[in-house]
Design a protein around this nucleic acid. Sequence first.
DNA 1: CCTCTGATGTAGGCGATGTCTACTTGCGAC
DNA 2: GTCGCAAGTAGACATCGCCTACATCAGAGG
Lengths: 195, 195
Amino acid sequence: MPTSSARYHHGDLRETLLGAAERMIDADVSRTFSLRELAREAEVSHAAPYKHFADRHQLIVALDERWMREFVAAQAAALGSSDPGQDLLALGSAYVGYAIAHPSRFLILFDPAINRPGHPPTPAFAELVREHATLLRDTVAAAAAAGVVSGRSETVGVALWSQVHGLATLVLLGYLPATDVKDVLTSVLHRGPSS
Amino acid sequence: MPTSSARYHHGDLRETLLGAAERMIDADVSRTFSLRELAREAEVSHAAPYKHFADRHQLIVALDERWMREFVAAQAAALGSSDPGQDLLALGSAYVGYAIAHPSRFLILFDPAINRPGHPPTPAFAELVREHATLLRDTVAAAAAAGVVSGRSETVGVALWSQVHGLATLVLLGYLPATDVKDVLTSVLHRGPSS
DNA sequence: CCTCTGATGTAGGCGATGTCTACTTGCGAC
DNA sequence: GTCGCAAGTAGACATCGCCTACATCAGAGG
C-alpha cells in the first residue's frame, strides 16, 4: 500500500534526495544543503542517505553528472542550422544560456571544490566532457571550413571556450550585466580572418 | 616582555589569523580552514578570532580584499611598455599569471559563495574592482587607438576580460593545460580589424 | 506458500564546527 | 595609580558528517 506515508522502505529514496537537493539550490543560488536536511525533507532518518551515497561528496557528484548531461544536451540541441557561423553562435549562446537559466547548477558543476584535477571525475562525467569537447571541436572546424573563423583550429576552440565560460562566470558573479552577453557573443564572429 | 609565548594578549592576532589562513590554503588548493583551526595555530582560544572578525565569512572577506589588491597591483605592474599591443598582452598575461601562481587565492577571490551580487562587496573591495576596470578600459582604449584591436571599445574590453578569466578558470579546473595559455593570449592580438 | 537473506531504513553516538554568553585580564588614557 | 574598554578565556548549544549496531521487509528459491 504505497498510500501510507509512513512505510518503512521509501521506494526511491535516491531519486527523492537528488530531487530535493536540486529543488533547494535552484530556489536559491547561495543555498547549500546538508545530508540531514535532505533526509528530513524525504522524511527518513538522518543516516538513510548513506545507503545510497557513500558521503555528501558522492551525492553532489551524482548531481553533477546529471547536470553535465543536460548541459551538453542543451548545446547539442542548439546546433543543426545549415549555417556554420550560426551554429557556432548558437553553441556559445546555449553555453551561457544554461548558466543563466540554471545558475546554481552551473556554479556547482564548475565548483573547484568538487571537480578538480586532483579529484578525478567519474567515468560517466569524463565521457560527457569528451562529448562536449567533440561538439565544440566539430562546430569550430565547420566554421573554420566556412571561413567564419580563422587561425589554428585548436587554438580557436580553446579561445572560444574560454571566452564563453568566462562570460558566463562573470555574469553569474555579478561583474558583468547579462546585457553584455549578446554583444560579446556576436563580436566573436565579426572578427575577420587574419594570420 | 614579548618573548613569552604564553602572554594573555596576543599582540596582533588579526594579522596572525589571516597569515595562517593564507599559508594553509596556499599549501594546498583543495584545503579549507576552520576558525578553530586558525585559533589553534595562533595558540589562542577558539573564541578569540571573534574579537577580530564577526564571523568566518568576514575573515575571508578580509583575505579577499588583500588578494584583490595584489591581483590588481600585479596587473598594473605589468603595464608600462611603450607598445599598446604589448601592454594588452601583458595585462592578460598578468591576469592568468596570478591565477596560476596563486590558484587558491584566485579561486577564493572569485568564489560565488563569497562574492556575489546578493552579497554586496566591501567599499574597499568595490574600489579595487573599479581600479581594475579602469586598468582594463585604459589599456583597451590605447590598443584601439593604435589599431591593435577593433570594434566597440566597451565590448572588446568585456570580451577580453571574459576570455582571460575563462582561460584562467578552465586551467585551474584542469579542463585546459597551462600550455594553452600563451597560444590563446597571443591569438587575441593576431586578429585583424574588421567591422 | 514459506523461509531466509540482503538491501534499505532506524537509533544513537562521536568528534568537529560556527557562534553565543559570561567571565577575566591587562594596556594605556587620564 | 586607577580604571575602562579592548582583547582574551571557558563553556555551552545546535548542527553536521559519518560510523556502528540493530530492525524491517521485499523478493528469490525451495
